[in-house]
Design a protein around this nucleic acid. Structure first.
Lengths: 158, 158
DNA sequence: CAACAACTTCAAGTGCACTTGAAGTCAAGC
DNA sequence: GCTTGACTTCAAGTGCACTTGAAGTTGTTG
């Protein structure tokens, strides 16, 4: 474990392109822990941390929340440095998420041509408006997920 | 303007599948205004409001924030009921947004095969990690299009 | 007319992912 | 030794999109 393999929080932040405050936050959240502290209590990270951060940022771009990401990272082996195979297995899991999301957007786009493109925005027919395949969760979770499915609110008499 | 064309906040909420509190919030935000108030100060909406709400929810699914949506809605003619053409023109503006988002996700997927798929997560090369091609998906608010809610997307229960 | 649901306003709270600020400590260069 | 900058902790603040709660009013129904 060469000291040259250890990076300060500022170095990690610069290399990973995140703020130092973000790294402290990630530590609080148990997402990225520093390898050790100096005598003077400064954080020192393994290069490995960069990979974790990369994973987190990428997963966020795919639409995952930190809780889900933490759950994913928890599957990494502890005790040993994750191998390429470990990371591959992990990222493969959100490949399907990504595919699903692309499919969703494409279906929205298709609906846009067929539905909104015509200006109808029909409440009872428009899949764009009535996504049966997804709950559009924005911000905090769990709000729409329960109860609000509001099934057949759309009167037959339109 | 038949009174039967006017709906209470509860009726609008039920038909549109949103909470009444959301409608009051949208009013505060200037997104959906009731047509008038009753003697007893209750809100009464035109059916037209349903279309506005449909537009808002759809635009949210495409990743727009309420500020952008408000700006879009501001382009609608005031004084007259928007026509099909008005709505079409409006929704066409986020068709390009949608296309861009799809392209972004596809490029992430391609990188996933070529980069994360190999476990590298290279910080300096990986486009997945260094998205130079799109405005960052920022903030807690408008996370893009969370595709579904199945908790095991990341294999958490595996 | 009493009960009750549906509505009203206004203020405050929620959840996420951070950021900012205050007050202090540590390390390097001059 | 002094300054400067990078770091430390902890608390509080931010932005978005709502939701919740309290306290009161309105409208309908038995």
């Amino acid at each position: 474990m060469d000291a040259r393999d250890l990076l300060t929080i500022g170095q990690i932040a610069a290399r990973a392109g995140v703020a130092t405050s973000t790294l402290r936050y990630y530590e609080d959240e148990g997402l990225v822990l520093p390898a050790l502290r100096t005598d003077g209590n400064r954080r020192l990270y393994h290069r490995e941390a960069l990979r974790r951060i990369a994973f987190i940022r990428s997963a966020q771009r795919v639409g995952l929340g930190l809780a889900e990401i933490r759950a994913a990272l928890a599957q990494l082996p502890d005790g040993r440095t994750p191998t390429v195979a470990d990371w591959s297995r992990l990222s493969a899991t959100w490949r399907s998420r990504l595919d699903a999301q692309i499919r969703l957007l494409e279906s929205i786009r298709d609906d846009l041509d067929g539905c909104i493109g015509c200006g109808c925005l029909s409440l009872d027919r428009c899949r764009l408006y009535n996504p049966d395949d997804a709950a559009a969760v924005r911000g905090s979770g769990a709000r729409y997920l329960e109860g609000d499915t509001s099934a057949d609110v759309l009167g037959a008499n339109r």
